[in-house]
Design a protein around this nucleic acid. Structure first.
Lengths: 137, 137
DNA sequence: AGCTTGCCTTAGACCCTGTCCAATGTAGGG
DNA sequence: CCCTACATTGGACAGGGTCTAAGGCAAGCT
């Protein structure tokens, strides 16, 4: 976490109160907040922070590879701070909750050359869908 | 295709000109149109069709499992009519073009029970990202 | 074929997510 | 402590999608 702030400073990031708060809000496992949720949590600590700044900061964090953008449902994008431990997502079809998962095997290896249509394939992202324990009850 | 229309009629679908046109527009392989694209192609044949009807019809087709919704990039959702032949998607990170692919193996089998967090896991969706031949050139 | 009924369609207002801009503020090097 | 380039702000704007009230029409019934 403060490793994150250090890395960013090394990269020439001007460290402002707003950016610090956004980074803090995104800390943790199984965190997948929308930009709007990030904004309201950040505003709880720094009331004058603007939506534009939250969007700017999130975009920069994504570009620097510190945060991964997840489009689960075509509505708001979600931001996953756990970018340095590769993982996939399991999401509840009913309530939309998300968990990070670590499947075995490498999905990239499962795409035969005959199926790659001449693409240079770079990555594979797996989304599992199901019903979470709370919704099943 | 007219199998589709038959199935829908059996399910109590009132068969209108608008719905027929939407279904026709969505026919084919590697078809991944946005709602807006569906609307303009449908309007080419039936000029007075409204956006609302296209959205309604697409939603119904998705609910009935005849069409799959694909959220690739957080922008417009795309609609894939090839719902009865299970497949995954390969998309170009640069231009956004999409191909249907059929990887080997079953990603569902790669999620150990210890990683399922009590969910009833129903399906796995794999998205491959890369650069298409046109964009690589 | 004509009637009836309830489902469909329509246009347009509206909402949500996200981007852009010009004006103002401030981190951090000198 | 000052300067300046980089950040932040709020508000306007754009794209994608949903909702609603009013009128239209498919299909079952006679």
């Amino acid at each position: 976490m403060s490793d994150l702030l250090d890395r960013l400073r090394e990269g020439g990031w001007r460290l402002t109160a707003q950016r610090r708060v956004v980074a803090e809000v995104l800390d943790g496992d199984h965190v997948h907040l929308t930009a709007d949720e990030v904004h309201s949590r950040a505003a709880a600590r720094l009331p004058e922070i603007s939506r534009a700044t939250v969007y700017n900061t999130l975009r920069e964090l994504v570009q620097r590879g510190e945060v991964v953008e997840v489009s689960t449902d075509g509505r708001a994008k979600r931001y996953d701070p756990n970018a340095h431990r590769p993982h996939h997502h399991l999401l509840c079809a009913r309530c939309g909750s998300i968990r990070d998962v670590h499947p075995t095997g490498d999905p990239l290896a499962n795409l035969p050359a005959s199926e790659s249509f001449g693409f240079t394939v770079l990555e594979a992202e797996v989304t599992y869908r199901g019903i979470c324990p709370d919704c099943a009850a």
